[in-house]
């Protein structure tokens, strides 16, 4: 479904990704594992069209999307749920969700879609008319995920969904991710909580200093000595 071939990318003159390749098949949950600064977020942002790679190729469902802008990538069915929630603080929860359905294709079905999404997040429904900034961290994360789903994406990318959340909320987030995948949305996830992520994912990539160093099934990664030592602390 998504193929990333040998991309190099970065901000301004500093190059962060060096020859990254990966692929995601329809219906999978795939994870990217790596230390802070390894280039995980940059990879997701490059796929989302927010950074144009200096070389390499990204294809989605057979179409070359390497040089598309962010809004065009959203139209193709890829949505990124960013690190740190990034809600619109002075807007209500409902307005935040409607922004998720901004593109024309999604806008026509926004009301139906809103109902569907709210069924998955009953807590969000209760908060519908509060401003986003008044929510707790866990609630904000749920709104961010719900907002991402409003565009009805085929591929949903998560950047650190557990960021700053208490363990109990983190497990709720992972349940939601599994639920979303079960309904047929493909998931690419970057997470510091490596163990929980590998538990829900089918495959994983290990990124170090902007390079993919290991690519394995999630099960094998959990057993891999290097991964256990470097990322699981066992």
């Amino acid at each position: 479904m998504l193929t990333v071939e040998n991309i190099h990318a970065g901000y301004g003159p500093t190059s962060i990704l060096q020859d990254v390749s990966l692929d995601v098949k329809e219906g999978e949950i795939v994870t990217i594992v790596g230390a802070n600064g390894a280039g995980k977020t940059t990879t997701l942002r490059t796929i989302a069209g927010l950074i144009t790679p200096t070389s390499g190729r990204i294809t989605f469902c057979g179409e070359d999307i390497t040089r598309l802008r962010g809004d065009q990538v959203v139209d193709r069915g890829i949505t990124l749920i960013p690190e740190g929630r990034q809600l619109f603080p002075d807007m209500t929860v409902r307005e935040n969700l409607l922004m998720g359905a901004y593109r024309r294709a999604a806008r026509d079905f926004q009301d139906e879609r809103l109902e569907e999404v709210l069924d998955i997040f009953p807590r969000v429904r209760e908060r519908l008319h509060q401003t986003a900034s008044s929510l707790s961290g866990g609630e904000q994360q749920m709104v961010a995920i719900a907002r991402g789903m409003m565009a009805n994406p085929r591929l949903l990318m998560f950047d650190e969904p557990s960021l700053g959340l208490a363990p109990i909320i983190v497990s709720q987030v992972f349940e939601v991710v599994q639920q979303i995948a079960a309904k047929g949305t493909t998931v690419l996830i970057v997470e510091q909580n490596v163990y929980s992520t590998l538990k829900v994912a089918q495959r994983g990539y290990v990124l170090e200093n902007g390079r993919v160093v290991i690519s394995e099934s999630a099960e094998d990664l959990l057993q891999d000595d290097y991964v256990r030592q470097a990322y699981l602390g066992i």
Binding site: V194, Y195, S196, I234
Partner: peptide
């Protein structure tokens, strides 16, 4: 500290803490 179950849970999740 790195063996503290609360710490393991915070970093690696409940599931991991329970399993190990």
């Amino acid at each position: 500290v790195v063996r503290d179950p609360h710490v393991i849970e915070a970093y690696l999740g409940k599931e991991f803490a329970n399993a190990h």
